[in-house]
């Protein structure tokens, strides 16, 4: 059993869990994920690791209450436990001194991009964080990102805070305005990561996206997370989850993510 040391609601439907997992905390690197299971009847779902504390022996994940398991997670409180917490899984994100980088986050990705922001800054990059939400009430962690980046740009779909629009619009605007970007990282819903990749493609700026297909074991054993990268089938759990966004077959990814939509709806 893995105890929840803390649980907090960050914004409507967004929660953060701090889990006691000292061995994982010691090994995790930016871009990796964990597989969690809530209880004996639970499914295995992947969540990107958002933060960790080696001294405290804890690992943090952020999630959006969107399906059966995340709904169960939302009900948990500090002191409760998860029956399984497996990690760190997947390949870490490549962190180097690229120059000027953008880290774009939407949805749970506002939180899950933090390890990249921090590591890229430590490597000496100029780090611009761009975060997006439909409405200002769905934003969180602006302060934390400011702490580790050179600049945070906030966008809201309805214009209730910051720039009106979305993260990919800001990336496009920068590139069209002649700002040189050396690499872009995007975390969030699939549609948002696709738009970020589309924004950078005409300018040839390499864009690393953190894919989130359905997984079961998360160790390369089942192939549920097959994605097509530059026409080649890869397993997001062991080959990824970070891939070049210009090479991802986005339609396939979205279709596969929706494989069980009918079953999910029926059960809720």
């Amino acid at each position: 059993m893995y105890q929840l040391v803390a649980k907090e609601n960050l914004a409507p439907n967004f929660s953060i869990l701090k889990i006691e997992a000292p061995e994982v905390a010691r090994k995790v690197q930016p871009g990796q994920f964990a597989i969690i299971r809530t209880d004996e009847k639970g499914e295995r779902i992947p969540l990107t690791i958002t933060d960790w504390d080696i001294n405290e022996g804890t690992v943090t994940v952020i999630f959006l209450d969107v399906g059966r398991t995340t709904h169960k997670l939302t009900q948990l409180q500090a002191g409760d436990s998860l029956i399984n917490f497996v990690g760190p899984l997947g390949m870490p994100t490549e962190i180097n001194n690229f120059g000027r980088v953008v880290c774009a986050g939407g949805c749970y990705g506002i939180g899950s991009i933090l390890p990249e922001v921090r590591a890229l800054k430590e490597k000496g990059n100029e780090v611009i964080a761009i975060i997006e939400a439909r409405h200002k009430s769905l934003l969180y962690w602006q302060n934390r990102l400011e702490q580790f980046s050179d600049r945070v740009i906030v966008t809201t779909g309805d214009g209730s805070y910051g720039y009106k629009g979305w993260a990919p619009d800001q990336i496009k605007e920068m590139l069209e305005g002649g700002v040189k970007l050396d690499r872009v990282f995007a975390h969030g819903c699939t549609f948002m990561m696709m738009l970020c990749s589309e924004a950078t493609k005409p300018f040839g700026v390499k864009t690393i996206v953190s894919l989130n297909p359905i997984m079961v074991d998360g160790t390369g054993m089942c192939g549920a997370c097959r994605v097509s990268i530059n026409g080649e089938t890869k397993f997001a759990c062991v080959d990824g989850p970070n891939f070049d966004g210009h090479e991802v077959d986005w339609d396939l990814l979205m279709h596969r993510q929706h494989s069980y939509l009918d079953e999910e709806k029926e059960s809720l």
């Binding site: 499914e43 079961v216 089942c222 059960s267």
Partner: peptide, 24 residues
Amino acid sequence: YSANEFLTRINLMKAYLFPEYDTP
């Protein structure tokens, strides 16, 4: 599916008992 995935969903995750069990 791969056979691994199909069999894992059934044998390990008990997907045949969905929605009592969470794995579809």
